[in-house]
Amino acid sequence: MRRSFPSAVMALAGLALAWTGSPAAAQDWPTRPVTLIVPFLAGGPIDVIARVQAQKLGEILGQTVIVENVGGGGGALGAQRIARGTPDGYIFVMGNVGTHAYHPTLYAKPLYDPVADFAPVGLTTESPRLLVARPTLPVADLKGFVAFAKANHATMSFGSGGLGSATHVPCLLVNQAMGVTVTHVPYRGAAPAMQDVIGGRTDYMCDSIQTAVPQVKQNNVKALAVLSAVRSPLLPEVPTAAEAGLPGVEADTWNAVFLPKGTPEPIVRKLVAAVNQTLDDPTVRKRLDELGLAIVPPERRGPDYLATFVKSEIARWAPAIQAAGLKVE
């Protein structure tokens, strides 16, 4: 009896596992609330985007979508949780260029493989970075900022939402273009980084357009340049970096949904369909448009496109990170 009891337990566990991974169980998904991991603190740009989409996504899935913030490591800790997560469809992540393009080059020992450890669902939105400075910085435009930075870079600092985050690497491009080295101050999220720019404790940051614009309009920070090929309709008076005399600084960011690797295909397909339906909802589209986000068109959505896109983005950003000599041990 003592020898057979563990065997019986193992048999029952095997039956349970077989059931949860069965096609029928996958087709019934979801039967309980699902969790969307935002790999940054609440109040940051990714958090805003996720919460706009989560409510509608829950309505479509017929279950509550719980948004859980897991900050740290420039988004790496939250993404790592998905890479190691149970592939049952009940946990997925809103990744971005930082978590899935910068990470493998940035880390000497990456916490995960952005390609091999995830089941891609699809791109959702894109947006430019905005270079903003503290309100007391004695400059009026990008030209003045460049001159000031060249003269004072040894005593200046810039903030970001974490080492290797999508608010960190774009500022490295700015610094490289100016030919200066500035002290980097990493935070656990973009929101506290912005608060220190507003308070004058750091000099500048490269924030997401959707969270930076309200601060610009309230005169809490100075908008110096849009780090994109074109101006933003939210701030049409603010030039691109190239227009203002600093060419080669384009740092559009993107957001995308990923499941753990090995998630059953029927679940992946259902989440793909639900995410696409969410992006096509007029109310969601209106809100994302108000935030200055571009919704990815249908031809650039889906798992296949995202899988190829992530590989190309890793290759695109590797030279800039390597040129900056940036490496997390």
Rank of each mutant, 00 (worst) to 15 (best):
A324E: 00
H168K: 04
H103I: 05
P260H: 03
A24M: 13
Y305N: 13
E59H: 03
Y102D: 03
F158T: 13
F158D: 12
P186T: 09
I267D: 06
V121N: 00
V139H: 03
G58K: 00
T202Q: 12
L15S: 15
T31W: 04
V185C: 01
Q322W: 07
P247A: 07
D289V: 00
G179P: 04
V226L: 02
K143R: 15
D304I: 03
F118Y: 14
V174F: 03
F309N: 13
I314M: 12
S160D: 01
V146K: 04
A274T: 03
P264G: 07
P170E: 08
L173V: 10
V48Q: 11
H100Q: 14
K311W: 08
N276Q: 15
T105A: 13
A273M: 10
A229C: 00
P260A: 02
E68A: 13
G189L: 06
G245R: 14
R2K: 13
V328D: 10
K327Q: 12
R287F: 01
S157E: 12
P114A: 01
R316E: 12
W317C: 04
T136W: 01
V216S: 10
P298Q: 09
S165Q: 00
L227Y: 01
S312E: 15
D113N: 14
T64W: 00
L123G: 06
V97S: 09
N69G: 10
S22F: 06
A315M: 08
A273N: 02
V310T: 12
G292A: 11
T167Y: 00
L271D: 06
R316T: 13
L130M: 14
